[in-house]
Simulated scan of single mutants.
Amino acid sequence: MTTRTFRIMVRGVFDGLTDAQRAELLAEAPRHDVLHAAFTREGHLSYDLTARTAFTFRFLDEGEEEEDILLATERAEQAARAWLDERGYGCRNLRSQAEDLSQAPLGKRQRRAAQSPR
């Protein structure tokens, strides 16, 4: 059986932040800049509070069956909620989007490499 790699994005909006929480997030903002965004097993958070209160967690997970993407998405949402809850950050409009990389279309270079003789 082959292993499938899943990329999951959990998006939402910070809600009801106190001044102290906002200051805390702004102090940590360089670590969470979208330019450093990456899909990781533990999840990577990115946001830009100076522009808007939206955030995105990016998770990387694996499974063996196509249906495993549902469990991976559920784990990602739970991890995002846990991170927010541990810090007392309120959120709203939490939603997820998942992609099975084994189903992703090949890019131009990948198609060329697949067609070239070895």
Rank of each mutant, 00 (worst) to 15 (best):
A54R: 10
R81A: 14
E74C: 11
R87D: 06
R81M: 14
E65I: 01
Q110Y: 02
R118Q: 08
A104N: 05
R111V: 05
Q103M: 06
L106S: 06
L71P: 00
L106C: 03
C91F: 15
F39E: 14
Y47D: 01
T40S: 13
Q21F: 00
N93E: 15
H36I: 06
Q103R: 12
E67Y: 04
R11D: 08
S102K: 05
R95E: 13
L101R: 11
A76H: 08
T50A: 12
F14L: 03
F57Q: 05
D68T: 08
A79P: 02
F6S: 10
A104E: 15
T2F: 14
A72M: 12
F39T: 09
A38S: 08
L84Q: 04
R118A: 15
A82V: 04
T3K: 05
L26M: 11
Y47I: 02
E64Y: 12
G12H: 02
A38K: 08
E77A: 15
A98N: 07
G43F: 07
S102E: 15
L49P: 03
L45M: 09
T2K: 13
S96N: 08
R58N: 13
R41Y: 06
D100M: 04
T2H: 12
L17F: 02
A104T: 15
G16K: 02
E62P: 03
R95I: 06
E65D: 14
R52V: 04
A76C: 11
F59L: 10
D48I: 01
L70W: 12
D19K: 02
E66I: 07
F55V: 05
R95T: 09
H44V: 10
D48S: 10
G88S: 04
N93W: 14
R11Y: 05
E24M: 01
D85Y: 03
H32G: 08
D19R: 03
R52L: 07
G16N: 05
M9D: 12
F59D: 09
A104M: 12
L26N: 01
D68V: 12
L84W: 02
M1K: 06
T53L: 05
R31M: 11
V13C: 05
A20H: 03
T53E: 11
